[in-house]
Design a protein around this nucleic acid. Structure first.
Length: 648
RNA sequence: GCCGAAGUAGCUCAGCUGGUAGAGCAGCUGAUUUGUAAUCAGCUGGUCGGGGGUUCGAGUCCCUUCUUCGGCUCCA
């Protein structure tokens, strides 16, 4: 007999060899029907695998992440079986579960696989699923495994086998398909009730551009058809938030083939919105002692040789610009830091001068590969809200804290509540990748960790993710489709002060090297606006939105009164327009609602007589009659509150 | 860059096996003067991404090029 401990702490006895599934059945038949896998002593196992020792057990259903992963992994195998039935001889690489579903990388040999074929595969998968074939686990010797895949002529599995030890190799078989797999899997294919193959993509074997490109098929599966439908609806909803779509609809920005790919054109409404973002940050920066600087868009090659950027990125950069007479080489500015270093050097510095905080909304240009471009999030020309803080080593922590405050101020004012703060530190094993003394690194890493803790930031620590020149703190936010983007960043740098021979005179009258902090709360304005659009689905905070109100006269008779209202609100620093079109009120409301105008102010005979406005709020409808000043105060208070969230 | 998909009016899209380019919205003109999510009528608008080819004839078939979209981190 073995003792099995359940999550609630209760202990039950079973004969040795009992499976998790049988344990589930002993609890309830309903539970047994839903068990996909089981966590045995914190390891996920097949529910059908016999238990032979005492164990704690946690039965996993669709409600758990591990349950979903198991299901999706098994679905990947099912897809492989379906594919192999249509295209015998294709070779399989890896097929893991991912955040939303699964994929399998496949080598189709000479034939290409097109998205049109997915439907056929889905059908086959459902047919195979309904057969309720069991996933059968089998231990196999390395020699037998190699022989099997030699016979199948699959170089990928053979390569994977090279890295595995004899003794812990397992095969899984369901129906007519056998795969090298560590498992675990769901009991049988019958659990898979709904399948959707989402897309076909190219993916390099082991993620390396030098290797052969395989065909990756992404899919997702569910235990109920209803859940699949819900998921697809969710995807549709997410598409509606896409910043490329909303940017066009709200007339914020556009692209032109003639101007060039990855080079955004900001339309008036977008440019004004961007301007408000810039002003908001500028105001905060001036309060915290930043000094504005301006630097040109190109610089001599030599500058980037000194900074080290030429060596690292020069080859992948835009081609240099040459002067006609002297043949000098200039490069488009890919970053602002070297220029700021030169500004620092332009006058001698004392320890009393530090920290020096140089800020610039600097537009930079980087060559991004054709396929990497993506709306406003990945472009070839963008503006960083850049600043470089030159400080003494003992000032790093204090400066870091202030920057975190600034980033949080920005995030709060824009309603970003869900972000990840990632602390990137050195690789614990290999310190040869980094420059700078251990002493300085320790100081900087401690400064970041302590500052983040002091500010109560929920952080994730990643070892080995630091830049070669210093540790950093990145703020990551997800877009509408769940893709992660880095927005704000704070980085400590020992490299550039060294390369540019930056100095200050210390209290000991000796020359010392300052530490540099790179920081950008937005990151890039382009990417920030993109993620912001998706985050708020185009419903910007009131202080930022292009038009705060639209005045809708009931008929043209009230246009004059509408104009008075508009002037009165403009005088209170509110912005909006009068919808003077010769349309009925219902039409005007509909159009302005679609255009996401926060407030619609309806004026007709009654309002004109009483010198009032009937206010309708976006998404809410009628919120009552307001005096004009009363409305202005109402809006101003919301704005104040939004902008000062961080201090509350 | 590589794999796959797509490009038709300002926008969203239709156009089957090749046979005179279509709709809705937007825009313009006129009528209507409107009370909380689409008033009616008329009109304008396109080298079907560009170039080449096959054909009596190409939006449709072939080649080429550009742009856009999905993906190229998740290690059996």
């Amino acid at each position: 007999m073995i003792k099995v401990t359940l999550p609630d702490g209760s202990v039950r006895e079973y004969v040795s060899g009992t499976t998790s599934l049988e344990v589930a059945r002993s609890i309830s038949e309903g539970l047994a029907r839903n068990v996909l896998a089981a966590k045995i002593n914190n390891q996920v196992w097949d529910a059908t695998r016999p238990l032979t020792t005492d164990a704690t057990i946690n039965l996993l259903t669709w409600d758990s992440l591990e349950g979903k992963e198991t299901m999706w992994h098994s679905t990947a195998h099912l897809m492989a079986e379906a594919l192999e039935s249509f295209y015998p001889g294709i070779k399989f690489a890896i097929g893991p579960p991912v955040e939303n579903g699964f994929y399998y990388d496949i080598d189709f040999g000479d034939r290409s696989f097109s998205a049109d074929e997915l439907e056929k595969i889905e059908k086959k998968m459902l047919e195979l699923a309904s057969q309720k074939n069991e996933y059968i686990r089998k231990n196999i010797s390395k020699a037998d495994a190699i022989a099997y895949f030699k016979e199948k002529n699959d170089p990928y599995k053979l390569e994977l086998l090279e890295g595995l030890n004899d003794g812990d190799i397992t095969f899984y078989t369901q129906g007519n398909f056998t795969d090298l797999c560590r498992g675990p899997h769901i009991p049988n294919t019958g659990f898979i009730k709904a399948v959707k193959l989402l897309r076909v993509a190219g993916a390099y074997w082991r993620g390396d551009e030098k290797n052969k490109q395989l065909t990756r098929i992404y899919g997702i599966s569910f235990p109920k058809d209803k859940e699949l439908k819900e998921y697809l609806t969710l995807l549709e909803e997410a598409k509606k938030r896409d910043h490329r779509k909303l940017g066009k609809e709200l007339e914020l920005f556009t692209f032109s083939e003639k101007v060039g790919m990855g080079l955004p054109l900001w339309l008036p409404k977008g440019a004004m919105l961007r301007e408000r973002l810039v002003q908001m940050l500028q105001k905060a920066q001036i309060k915290t002692g930043y000094l504005p600087v301006v630097t040109p868009h190109i610089a001599q090659k030599e500058l980037y040789v000194t900074s080290g950027h030429y060596e690292k990125y020069g080859k992948d950069s835009f081609q240099p610009i040459n002067t006609p007479q002297e043949g000098e080489q200039f490069f488009l500015k890919p970053m602002n830091c070297p220029h700021h270093c030169e500004i620092y050097k332009s006058s001698p510095k004392s320890y009393k001068d530090l920290p020096v905080r140089l800020a610039e909304f600097g537009t930079v240009y980087r060559y991004e590969q054709h396929g990497e471009l993506h709306g406003l999030t990945r472009v070839r020309g963008f503006t960083q809200d850049d600043a470089h803080l030159f400080c003494r080593p003992d000032q790093v922590k204090e400066e870091f804290c202030k920057v975190i405050d600034l980033v949080l101020y920005v995030f709060n004012a824009l309603g970003f509540e869900h972000y990840t703060a990632q602390i990137s530190l050195r690789d614990k094993e290999d310190r040869s990748k980094y420059i700078g003394s251990d002493e300085n690194w320790n100081l900087a890493e401690q400064a970041i960790i302590e500052s983040a803790a002091e500010k109560g930031l929920p952080t994730v620590v990643e070892y080995g993710e630091a830049a070669f020149y210093g540790p950093k703190l990145d703020f990551m936010v997800k877009d509408a489709l769940g893709r992660k983007w880095q927005l704000g960043t704070i980085q400590v740098d020992y490299n550039l002060p060294e390369r540019f021979q930056l100095e200050y005179t210390g209290s000991d009258n000796q020359k010392h090297r300052p530490v540099m902090i790179h920081r950008a709360p937005f990151g890039s304005l382009e990417r920030f606006v993109a993620v912001l659009i998706e985050h708020c689905a185009g419903n910007f905070p009131l202080w930022l939105t292009p038009d705060q109100f639209a005045i809708l006269p009931i008929s043209e008779k009230y246009n004059a009164y509408a104009e008075n209202v508009k002037n009165a609100l403009s005088a209170k620093d509110l912005r909006g327009f009068t919808d003077e079109r010769n349309e009925k009120i219902g039409k005007k409301i509909r159009d302005n609602e679609i255009n996401k105008i926060p407030f619609m102010l309806i004026v007709g005979e009654k309002e004109e007589a009483e010198n009032k406005i009937a206010v309708r709020q976006h998404g809410k409808g009628d919120i009552g009659v307001f005096g004009i000043d009363e409305f202005a105060t109402f809006v101003t208070q919301i704005i104040e509150k939004d902008l000062n969230k961080h201090n509350q």
